[in-house]
Simulated scan of single mutants.
Amino acid sequence: MSIDEGAIDRREAFLHALVREAAELARAGFARQTGQAVSMKGPQDYLTETDGQVEDHLRARISEAFPEDGFLGEESGGEPGRQAWVVDPIDGTANFARAIPHFCVAIAFIARGEVQLGAIVNPVLDEVYFARLGRGAHRNGKPIRVSATSDITATSFEMGWSNRRPLARYIGALNALFEAGSNVRRGACGALGLAYVADGRSDGYAELHMNSWDCLAGLLLVREAGGVTGPFLSLGGLTDGAAVLAAAPGVAAILSEATGIPLLTGPDLLAVAEEEHRRTA
């Protein structure tokens, strides 16, 4: 049976409280982290005690409130099913482990084949990004929009990195963007990178492979803030991960061409998005 709007209302109210609880746990863990041992799951893939603590809390709270929902977490896995919560307890763990305050907790709820709710919180800055499908995107309760940038020489993109794809593809994409006149940076926290696109702090984000817990909340934020994204879910990204692209409409085609990541919309729909963004910016 398809989930109704009332059921999503209840989950939205629950998520507002849940993301605050997660932020408190992550903030406390960050305060304890300096000088503590860090484990490695693989090359450049960090794991801290706080990752497990936050995910265990989220799983328990969701299971208690909505036992019918599936759960997929970075640390403990799970089966998403037809409707599920997708969780990254600490995105930007390498930053977290080195006492760099650029990390976040990311939570998404999917149903009807789409991301219905998304929340990303930076616990140190106390910034909560929140979106519901069809109802816009917000930071700490205030509406946000992607940037109105259309001049590539004024852009600042962010590009993530994954060892699941050849390094040469990253170098090629970076070279194309630099030659086009863009600035490119890497913050080592993909979920916040996407939130910053939604907030107009960055003009676009791309990564050749991301897992669903890293990006589903952020992709919803970008679309609800008037941006353009790639077709993550239709590429099998929920369970296997896929390429991610998110950008302001005026520069999305350039980022897509440089990275080779397709846009979710076709050229005609992209033009409509660009016009709508110019009209409302």
Rank of each mutant, 00 (worst) to 15 (best):
P123W: 04
A247T: 05
T280M: 13
L194V: 01
S256T: 04
P267Q: 07
A37W: 05
N183K: 15
L47Y: 10
T229Q: 03
E49T: 15
L219S: 01
I152R: 02
D51P: 03
Q116Y: 07
R27Q: 03
F130E: 06
V197E: 03
I90D: 01
D199K: 11
P249F: 08
G78L: 07
S76C: 12
V54H: 01
A242N: 04
P101Q: 00
I8E: 08
D268M: 12
R32H: 10
S212K: 02
D151K: 09
T259D: 08
E5L: 14
G226S: 08
R169G: 11
L270A: 04
A168W: 11
A173Q: 09
H209M: 10
L235T: 09
R59V: 14
V184T: 07
E68T: 15
Q83C: 13
L117H: 02
L264W: 10
E257V: 09
E224T: 07
N183Q: 15
A206M: 06
R185P: 00
A148E: 10
Q44D: 15
R82H: 13
A97H: 09
G241P: 03
A198L: 05
A243I: 07
A206E: 01
R186K: 14
A173N: 10
A225H: 05
D240W: 13
V121F: 05
T153M: 08
E79N: 14
Q36S: 15
V19W: 02
A111I: 09
T259P: 06
T280V: 15
L216Q: 01
H16T: 10
A271P: 05
R278A: 11
E275D: 14
G70R: 09
